[in-house]
Design a protein around this nucleic acid. Structure first.
Length: 424
RNA sequence: GGAGGAGUACCCAAGUCUGGCUGAAGGGAUCGGUCUUGAAAACCGACAGGGGCUUCAUCGCCCGCGGGGGUUCGAAUCCCUCCUCCUCCUCCA
């Protein structure tokens, strides 16, 4: 959510920057009228309330002296009616304004490249060498089926498409990655470990920006106003909803494991095979609450923390800076980390690291005080996958595949795999 | 699922039956001071925060006693509704 006062006094500048996102901004122009109307109504109702308060005191005194107050009471009865009328309209105006503000995307940071689509994203750096194979490589679903470590068919029977059973060393590999990532970030990178709820309420989904605009992307629990989390970002960021933190305890850094649930509405037919696009996948998520002046430096740090996972796994990747048209609704700046997937002959997103600045903090009411008695300010929030585990398994299966159909386990994972070196 | 009880400021806690200077008593914690070589104790003082409107900024005003609605000239106090927590029973990993 944008700051109403900022929007009021910098309207055309904000509008210009939002246009780089290429989204429909036709509603934006209703802001001026709503904002103006709101303030007029507030002035009116508050004046009447001040009068009512004053006269009610008088009435109280008159009653105490056993004097007649009927005229004043009659007068105030009318004032009360008027207040009620104005407040009804005010409430409606404020609701419209609120909905408008909740539907406006974040302002892109000046360092985000201007562009329309993913084709305009800018490569920031590359790491590792794309592997060459002396044999014909297989896609991870074929490798996994051959090794009997993933079962898509039975998952379709038991649940439906875009679900999977991990089996045997496949399940072990998933669990090893989870532990490896959690250990790395908590022990080496200074994040506090957290295991969040997998369902959240509507207010939390609004807080991080999934709602009100993208309800069709979420899984909603029937008869409850709860949603399956699309990412641990939602519960972990909302952990401090409506809180005021101490400046001295910032930055707060959390690493959370959770399953993530996505309806994948609008991507029917894409990545229908394999682990790349599932309705449910595991993910280790990094979340930070920081002071505004630190957030861009922290974005680099956090991205680096996620990259470290791939470096230790010796998986080649590149880092892309998302252009203004591909930033998503909430981010001011975003890096995607893309890992090499041989069967796709290209890099695929495995992590997304974003700086939301105060966008989520304002929606969720997450603030901090610099000084003991200081005025509360909004924190900046950031998060990034560290990493999506299913896609990491796909990357390992494919990049570490051998001619005989076996898969070598990356060295750093072996302690987590009971010292097994190869899945065969 | 059944039966009760409770949500008041950083924490504890009065006030709610009997609506009106209650912007809310009293403790504790915290901060400042006196005393002390220093500290503790004691004593003195400060301590509703937050949001909104207005303003160059102040001043001022409005809203805040779990959330939302209602009654009333006036609500922490009365009514409705939702949420959360606690106790007992039941169930259960």
């Amino acid at each position: 959510m944008l700051d109403m006062k900022y929007l009021r006094s910098n309207f055309s500048e904000v509008k210009e920057k939002l246009q780089y996102r290429g989204e429909d901004l036709s509603d934006l122009d209703t802001f001026g009228d709503l904002d103006e109307r709101r303030r007029v109504l507030i002035a009116e109702t508050e004046e009447l309330k001040a009068k009512r308060n004053e006269v009610s005191q008088e009435i109280s005194l008159l009653k105490k002296e056993k004097k007649d107050a009927d005229n004043l009471i009659l007068e105030m009865r009318q004032v009360g009616e008027k207040i009620k009328t104005i407040d009804t309209e005010l409430k409606e105006v404020e609701e419209n304004l609120e909905q408008l503000l909740l539907s406006i995307p974040n302002i892109p940071h000046e360092s985000a490249p201007i562009g329309e689509s993913e084709d305009d994203n800018v490569e920031v750096r590359q790491w590792g060498n794309v592997p060459t194979f002396s044999f014909e490589t297989k896609a991870h679903w074929d490798i996994a089926t051959g090794l009997d470590v993933l079962d898509f068919e039975r998952a379709s029977k038991v649940t439906g498409s875009r679900f999977v059973f991990y089996k045997g060393l496949g399940a072990r590999l998933e669990r090893a990655l989870m532990n490896f990532m959690m250990d790395l970030h908590s022990d080496q990178h200074g994040y506090q470990e957290m295991l969040p709820p997998y369902m959240v309420n509507r207010q939390s989904m609004i807080g991080t920006g999934q709602l009100p605009k993208f309800e069709e992307d979420a899984f909603k629990i029937e008869n409850w106003d709860y949603f399956l989390v699309p990412t641990a970002e939602v519960p972990v960021t909302n952990y401090y909803r409506d809180d005021i933190l101490k400046g001295s305890e910032l930055p707060k850094k959390y690493v959370a494991f959770s399953a993530s649930f996505r309806s994948e509405a609008g991507s029917a037919g894409r990545d229908t095979r394999g682990l790349i696009r599932q309705h449910q996948f595991n993910k280790v998520e990094l979340v930070q609450f920081v002071k505004p002046e630190d957030s861009y430096q922290v974005l680099e740090e956090l991205t680096g923390n996620a990259e470290k996972v791939l470096q230790l796994l010796k998986l080649p990747y590149r880092v892309m800076s998302m252009c203004t048209g591909d930033l998503g609704f909430t981010a001011a700046k975003k890096y995607d980390i893309e890992v090499w997937i041989p069967s796709n002959d290209t890099y695929r997103e495995i992590s997304s690291c974003s700086n939301f600045e105060s966008f989520q903090a304002r929606r969720a009411g997450i603030r901090f005080r610099r000084e003991e008695k200081g005025k509360p300010e909004f924190v900046h929030t950031l998060n990034g996958s560290g990493l999506a585990i299913g896609r990491t398994v796909a990357a390992i299966l494919e990049n570490y595949q051998q001619e005989d159909g076996s898969v070598v386990i990356p060295e750093v994972l072996r302690p987590y795999m009971g010292a097994i070196e190869v899945i065969k």
